[in-house]
Design a protein around this nucleic acid. Structure first.
Lengths: 228, 228
DNA sequence: GTTCAAAGGTCTACTATTGGACCATTGGGC
DNA sequence: GCCCAATGGTCCAATAGTAGACCTTTGAAC
């Protein structure tokens, strides 16, 4: 009749760890960046400071962050991040599901971004992030790529669409982490990225959508090829 | 830098109430339908039976459901549902955000549904649900309309896309509940519904997407007109 | 070099949630 | 008419999470 999804994906601690990890994995916060003060962050996340602290402690143990006391102290992202993820059992249906959701959200975001009359700051944000992605070497590529895809969602100025894109991307990244990154793919991606951003900046929703769709289909094929 | 969304939307009790209400509001369960047994439902929802029972009790107090003991007992949806929602403070940005997300998800779902080679059961599910929506009177319309939109997502056979569409729809329904339902709108919706389903059944992704987009834009205009 | 505001670190009492055992009711099947 | 399996109803001990007060460290400003 109706599948009742779980109310909670895990306990508060686990969910908090995931939430904190997201901007690190998506390349939104980089080496040396400081997280908001614990009291503030706990409030944003809607959890108690105690729970937040356990989560931060776990991230510190895993080598993602380091905390320093005192005024001008805080919790800082480490420069050398632990390499991700032990290989997980592969689930074809789960991959296809993640790809489907991602396709809907990201083509939708690209189209919407191209229909808006973007403020100068948004245009610069896009070209900046595009530039950084093109200039990335293999080690940095995945994070900067994520960052660019997220930037496209951000300029739609639609909070929940952006959040959904971030979540979908996080899910896809689990799969991407398990396949090799090759130079030719990277160049091809860069070309597509440029095309998409150009379409958005020149307010061409159809081109933005179709180019993004092509780009995503490319990645989807790669993933299916490597993981099937 | 990054907006950390809340880890929890409320306490387990509140979230459970919302979760249980969703299929009732979306017209997925109707008068007389029985919810799964508490032990099973608690497991599906990932919460303890005690918490589930508080939520069920709250729904019973509000008149949504009734529980009966004994074998062949259970918790049943009442035939006369309480009328929804005290008017809430209106937030234009929140409405636009909900509309944006919905647009991306539902046009994406329609397109994807039309690219799949649908099994007979799915085709029947669509035509059935379409028929019920067309036949609905004003009192039933919103629920059957929701049901149809959800059915389109369901035939994509993509669990998380379907879940996201259900959530987005639930959000939109909060707004729809605050505007009048008029006969002409209803007829126009029915026409669009038929067109969308036809496009999906004849495997025409472009038509499915664009027709769905037109339909959603119509509803969006109505909402903005009434609520601005 | 003293001060002090802002940050992380610790503790405690309270509440929510869990998990599991056990009780009570019901109606269909024998 | 009795049995009994399936269902909701109750209770309790253990754990997770919250709210808030208080302690400690730090470095910039004076």
């Amino acid at each position: 009749m109706f599948s009742f999804r779980p109310v909670r994906a895990g306990n508060a601690f686990e969910e908090t760890v995931e939430r904190l990890l997201q901007p690190i994995r998506l390349g939104i916060v980089g080496a040396g960046d400081r997280l908001p003060p614990e009291r503030e962050l706990a409030e944003q996340l809607g959890i108690s400071r105690a729970t937040l602290r356990s989560a931060i402690q776990a991230l510190a143990d895993a080598g993602y962050v380091e905390s320093r006391r005192g005024r001008y102290g805080g919790t800082f992202v480490n420069s050398t991040l632990p390499s991700a993820s032990t290989t997980v059992a592969f689930d074809g249906a789960e991959l296809q599901d993640a790809l489907n959701l991602r396709h809907a959200l990201e083509t939708g975001a690209a189209e919407l971004a191209a229909t808006r009359d973007l403020p100068q700051a948004a245009r610069e944000h896009l070209t900046d992030t595009l530039g950084r992605a093109s200039a990335a070497d293999l080690a940095d590529y995945r994070r900067r790529d994520s960052r660019l895809h997220l930037a496209i969602a951000e300029v739609t100025d639609s909070a929940s669409l952006t959040a959904a894109v971030a979540d979908a991307r996080t899910r896809i990244n689990h799969f991407l982490d398990q396949i090799p990154l090759l130079e030719p793919n990277l160049e091809h991606s860069n070309a597509k990225h440029e095309e998409v951003v150009e379409a958005i900046l020149s307010a061409d929703p159809v081109a933005a959508r179709t180019t993004m769709a092509e780009h995503l289909d490319g990645t989807a094929s790669l993933l299916r090829a490597f993981l099937s």
